[in-house]
Each structure stands twice: as structure tokens, then as C-alpha cells.
């Protein structure tokens, strides 16, 4: 067995192990950390597959963005150190059965299919090429999905702000202070405006 194969199996074991722990641990913060490890393992897998760009994007978006977001939401919604309720035995059993059957089915399909291996062709991912193709308007260009995704991101951003704002309008105390100035309470704001006037 070659060294690269050994590395692959190590990475695979790490990803799956961390993934299993992420869905089974009953401490929510640990679950997020295991998810993080699983995602980092997937980034390592991308490095192994020599798609460094995807690996870097994976780390930036998933680790730097999504997991931090998840951890923040845990900070905001969870009481420290409380364990989650244990799922009922019946629940676990049937979930496990469904998952195992699904796994068996797909594994069967994969092993039966016999992919046409096209070895020995170089696989190069030049960052410049990704950029070129992303913005090209020719037949194999990706400008349309790129724009669509940009619109989606914009919509998501607006949506997040709207969702977060809705609750705040009625609740003045929780509102963020207006930019640059600090709101203390009513008599303060009134007197500062007097002073400015």
C-alpha cells in the first residue's frame, strides 16, 4: 500500500469518526467541535485530492463562517453545560436500521457499478482557470449560476437582517445602539439633544 493510500484511509477514518461523534454526543458544544473536526478532515481530503482551492474555500466558509455561526447560536441559546435529552431507544433503533439499510443499498450500487477509471490523466486545478471559467459567458461558462448565487446570497443577507430586525422593533432595550452614539436611557438622550441644540 502506498503512503498516499494510508493517508487517505487515515483522513477517512478521522472524518467518519468525528462525524459519528458529532451526531451522537449529548453535549451540544462538543457536537459543534466534532462537526468542526469533521469539516477540517474534509478539507484535508480536498488537499489530498489536490484541489487546494476548494480546500481553502471549505475552511474559510465552513470553519471560519458556518461553525463560528453555529457556536455563536449555541452561546446565545444554550445554558452552559446542559446535556441534551437522550433520544428514545426505539427512535435510535429505527433510525439506525434506516441508515444502515440505506448505506448497504448505496454501497451495493457503488460496488456493482464499476466506474470507468481513467487513470494517468493529469488533474490540474489552476486558480486562474477557475476564475476565468466562472466569469466566462461562453458555452461552458458559469456566469449565470454565479450571478444566481450572488442574488441568493444577497437575498439571504436581506432575509437574515429582516428576521433579526422584526423582533427588535418592539423591544427597545435589546436594540443595538445607533452607530457612533451610545443610547443610555431616555433622560440621557433628551438632555444630549438639548445640549446639541
Amino acid at each position: 500500500m502506498e503512503a498516499s493510500a494510508i493517508i487517505f484511509y487515515c483522513i477517512a477514518a478521522f472524518i467518519l469518526g468525528a462525524g459519528i461523534l458529532a451526531v451522537t454526543t449529548r453535549k451540544i458544544f462538543r457536537s459543534a467541535i466534532w462537526l468542526l473536526f469533521s469539516l477540517v478532515g474534509i478539507a484535508a481530503l480536498y488537499f489530498w485530492l489536490q484541489v487546494e482551492f476548494i480546500a481553502a474555500v471549505q475552511i474559510i466558509v465552513y470553519v471560519g463562517g458556518i461553525v463560528v455561526l453555529i457556536i455563536f447560536s449555541i452561546f446565545l441559546t444554550q445554558q452552559s453545560g446542559k446535556e441534551m435529552a437522550k433520544p428514545s431507544g426505539k427512535h435510535v433503533l429505527f433510525s439506525l436500521l434506516a441508515v444502515l439499510f440505506g448505506l448497504a443499498l448505496i454501497y451495493n450500487l457503488i460496488s456493482e457499478y464499476g466506474f470507468a477509471e481513467q487513470a494517468s490523466r493529469p488533474f490540474q486545478v489552476a486558480v486562474g482557470e477557475i476564475g476565468m471559467q466562472m466569469l466566462s459567458t461562453t458555452q461552458h461558462g458559469f456566469i449565470l449560476p454565479f450571478e444566481a448565487v450572488s442574488m441568493l446570497l444577497l437575498a439571504a443577507m436581506v432575509g437574515c437582517i429582516v428576521i433579526a430586525m422584526k423582533n427588535k422593533s418592539g423591544n427597545l432595550e435589546a436594540a443595538e445602539p445607533p452607530a457612533g452614539k451610545l443610547m443610555i436611557h431616555s433622560d440621557f438622550t433628551s438632555s444630549t439633544t438639548e445640549k446639541e441644540a
Binding site: 467541535i33 475552511i59 470553519v63 471560519g64 463560528v68 452552559s80
Partner: peptide, 28 residues
């Protein structure tokens, strides 16, 4: 000399925040 050098740096440096969040949460 990785071909995405500076992207790698900004990607990996975003990992360090996880350590800090971990320390902050775990300290109770």
C-alpha cells in the same frame, strides 16, 4: 510553496478563533 499561498493563510488563520471560542465556553 502552495499555489494558493495567501488564501491558505487567511483560511487557516480563521481557525484560531475556534480555539478561543472553545476556551471561552469550556472554562465555564
Amino acid at each position: 510553496d502552495i499555489n494558493i499561498g495567501v488564501l491558505y493563510v487567511s483560511a487557516v488563520s480563521s481557525l484560531s478563533v475556534i480555539g478561543i471560542l472553545m476556551a471561552g465556553w469550556a472554562s465555564n
